[in-house]
Design a protein around this nucleic acid. Structure first.
Lengths: 210, 210
DNA sequence: TATTCCATGTAATTCGTTACATGATTCT
DNA sequence: AGAATCATGTAACGAATTACATGGAATA
């Protein structure tokens, strides 16, 4: 059986490629704060993987100069070999990421749940998407100020912008969805068909050249 | 330990709530064709779950009138109890769906991978998003024609539109990402900061009322 | 006749989360 | 003194995929 990717490895290597040194706890923090909107890792994944990476020589523990008490805290740094492995992974095309959106499931099966229920799911998405879009919008200026000398700045901005665009798309979708449901309630499938035609034209935009 | 959701159950119940009767194979087909862009199930999940749902009385096997040979094919239909359970699940707010996008990981760690690599990842997304947006755009007219009498039509259109908006957002993002990288190559972080300000303003749109 | 598709199901293995155990440090 | 947070790690369990085994029906 061909073994599955084990992406956690590369997340850890990636973080250690930018962070110089980090503990398991640090890595968890980094993931939650910086890439939490498109990736997550739990301690149960991180700690065992750190041990394996160490055993494989891709990372190495760092001598900890203990400030006072013998506080147990293991920091690691990436090895040259680790960098090579990371780079070769980065250069391979990304594997397709399966997406599972439970809220769309609940909307897709909307007839069995009832229209009011469907509406409240959509309203929930709209609210959440609005909050997220605002949050992403607020982060960018901070990042531009605080990380003006950070060589990783562009890449952080790239993923941040992706988060914003995704939130914005959901917000737009939620508004269109509400319009379609109103049309459905008033005019059934024929009403929906009419409302659909009023939505921004699809083909035109996609064909547009950059 | 609080048991985890087991969404496969409700996917099966949902499909049987609209489909009247279906086999494990049919369910797999349905998932792949109708909701594959935001949900997926494998046989290894479906078949055991069908057995459990049967044992719990939420679905029931249907007598199969065999056309000729004794072909083994088990079709199931949802029971009244199954409908009750489905409905109560649908009415609960959707659990947050963890998202994992490997391609963003590769972009986020772009410095370790090199600019050309990052560019090719973005180009890949742009191509894929374009194809998807076009595909979604092509499905809608078909659906409006073929399913004019289908009581589930609106809900299918809703999720279809979500897929389109997502693809479109990625396409827009990819173009912006390319612009940011060009600015970075020419002017480093200061170039990026300048290019960032030229992107469509963030706050304005989100504050807009429907 | 060979290949593809229909069809069901199990086994092996990995992925990933949650809960638990444990203890130090910092803040109120 | 007590609460919150920092910090590491393991155990248990469920989720999910992939591969395998098996065989009929249709089609080229």
């Amino acid at each position: 059986m061909t073994p599955r990717p084990n992406t956690t490895r590369f997340v850890i290597l990636g973080i250690l490629s930018t962070e110089e040194s980090a503990s398991g706890y640090d890595i968890r923090q980094f993931v939650a704060l910086s890439i939490g909107h498109f990736w997550q890792e739990s301690f149960g994944q991180i700690y065992p993987e750190l041990a394996r990476l160490d055993a494989d020589g891709l990372i190495a523990p760092v001598r900890e100069r203990r400030t006072a008490g013998n506080r147990s805290r293991k920091r690691y740094q990436i090895t040259p070999h680790g960098r090579v492995i990371l780079k070769s992974w980065l250069q391979q095309p990304a594997a397709p990421s399966p997406v599972r959106l439970e809220y769309l499931l609940k909307i897709f099966f909307g007839r069995a749940g009832g229209l009011p229920t469907t509406r409240s799911h959509i309203a929930g998405i709209e609210k959440q998407a609005t909050e997220r879009a605002r949050a992403f919008a607020a982060i960018a200026p901070e990042l531009l100020q605080d990380s003006a000398a950070d060589p990783d700045l562009v890449f952080a901005l790239l993923t941040l912008r992706h988060g914003y665009r995704t939130a914005e798309a959901r917000l737009q979708w939620a508004r269109e969805a509400e319009a379609l449901l109103r049309a459905f309630e008033r005019g059934g499938n024929r009403g929906v068909a009419a409302a659909w035609k009023k939505l921004p034209a699809l083909e035109a935009y996609v064909d547009e050249s950059p």
